[in-house]
Design a protein around this nucleic acid. Sequence first.
DNA 1: CTGAAAGCGCTAACAT
DNA 2: ATGTTAGCGCTTTCAG
Lengths: 347, 347
Amino acid sequence: MTAVTIYDVAALAGVSIKSVSRVLNDEPNVSQTLKDKVQKAVHQLGYRRSLSARSLAGASSYLIAAFVDAELTIEHWKSGRGNDYLSRLELGALMECRRADYHLMVELIDHGSDTLERDVTALLAALKPAGVLLTPPNSDHPQVLAVLERTGTPFARIGPEATSARGFSISMDERQAAQEMTEHLIGLGHRRIGFISGPANYSASRKRRGGFEAAMAAHDLPVADELMVEGDFTFESGVAGGGRLLGLDDRPTAIFASNDDMALGVLQAAAALGLKAPDDVSVAGYDDTPSALFSTPPLTTVRQPVAEMAARATRLLIPALKPEDASEASIVPYELILRASTAPLAA
Amino acid sequence: MTAVTIYDVAALAGVSIKSVSRVLNDEPNVSQTLKDKVQKAVHQLGYRRSLSARSLAGASSYLIAAFVDAELTIEHWKSGRGNDYLSRLELGALMECRRADYHLMVELIDHGSDTLERDVTALLAALKPAGVLLTPPNSDHPQVLAVLERTGTPFARIGPEATSARGFSISMDERQAAQEMTEHLIGLGHRRIGFISGPANYSASRKRRGGFEAAMAAHDLPVADELMVEGDFTFESGVAGGGRLLGLDDRPTAIFASNDDMALGVLQAAAALGLKAPDDVSVAGYDDTPSALFSTPPLTTVRQPVAEMAARATRLLIPALKPEDASEASIVPYELILRASTAPLAA
DNA sequence: CTGAAAGCGCTAACAT
DNA sequence: ATGTTAGCGCTTTCAG
């Protein structure tokens, strides 16, 4: 089966290939008659332009490349688990690519490479993507950003630390979400609230912690040192941190963990100590991972609209989808998901 | 920044472009001197071949397309959750593509389309992928398979219902895994075991159920009708099914659910009835989703090596990676993951 | 408004 | 063992 080309369409329609190209690209100055003839032929032949020919000849490659961290990916691969964040991100990107007849390519970026700049440059040369979707931690990688800027490749950064660099940035207000979650806990009557932060070198950790402290301060609630513990975003660190907080003589009546995996760990630590959530301790997380829905009790958490962020980023990268009022940096709304792990303070 | 082409490399090395091409493609009859000169120039320029030019001129596109079900994807997108299965699958494919300098493209296939055959044909015409990775339920879609065969596109089916069609098939022995899990339960002393199956129209459901029944029969254990309930793979159906089984006058001492989400539901149903797992009832699942690790108690389950299956499939599709002994159908080993939700029958 | 010709950066036949 | 010459299927000039 030899593929149908633009020549076949032109021949069937009885016009030149340029005319076919014009119709296909919605170029101006095309008569309705021509349009009809061409469209009929295209339909009849089931013709579709070749991606590679289009990319080679034209300016755009109709390709969106998602840059994903190789190290993280390999870690997931080894653990035999998927990456929920990435998966959601991809769904969002995919939905938009489809609308505009673009294609999504996933590329692993190895930050450990000592030839990173060259690697990325070469990759861009090989792919010539119409746009690049940067996922954390690529969103903040100076060398990757530098190459992107140097080559003039449009890019969108998902959840970047800061929105200083060029390119688009799409993020949510991490700090405010944490603050709001803390307010929720305070609103339930909790005064003594424990906080488990993520590793300090993650910007998200710092932002979430800042939100917690701001809310406590706003209500004149002291934050004792013993109530602040640092985890590393893993379930195990949540178990450890939760155990420590709940082992306190004057234990907190609520614990806010900086992500769901740790909150789930807190839940387990509580169970191990014979404490019931939310009766004995309210527990809140952050991320809304699938597991948060299935824990006992289901976890109150913050939902980060990853798919929506990716969709928006993709729209910004595809000229045909780009909104008129496209601004460099956009903040998408998050959502507090209140489930059974948090409850009013027992009298 | 204008991209560096094969001409630049040839000029710098003082050879013809064909020689550069030869070296790059590892073609025979190339002197070491030439090789060195070219490689030096390539390195110096940071040259990388253009994907589109290569695809257009050559036979292969160096592209692996993963066909993903659009409907399922949209469902996930709406629910705001990722797809663990797909995510793991992608990781595996990505790791192999990277080794061979291939690229992974993700394509949504809309089974609902009444022009499905044309859509797929056109997509293949546009992409000319070197190989297609079929994920369930695409793995068994007759029309998709037909187009693939008609166009002569190499393809690999992940977890297909049957391995009759052409192309490669990579799967695990669902039936045997279920049988083995049942044996595990029986080995723990359980005799009265409840089973929650998936929807009958899924081949995996039937296979898992078959394995359960085989194990019970092998041990001369009767399977009462009241102990078999049908779910639909959702958490809610697990809650319902678990509630029904545990509400029985003579309730089972163990329950085997056909997937983790349902097993998690059983866990919740048990908790709601004041029953503790595994003391009062052992619970086993299937899939090893991330949530299985975080439930209380952590879930005993079957791990399906999705990433490994995808990696193998990808290797079969990439000539340079294809093993000598490549057989049409391969079965990858699964693993029983024994965690705290199953325990010996209390005396 | 439409068409002819010239590439895009490669690989594939053919030389030599 | 190396070089020359055509295309691959499109988009872009540039003409008419």
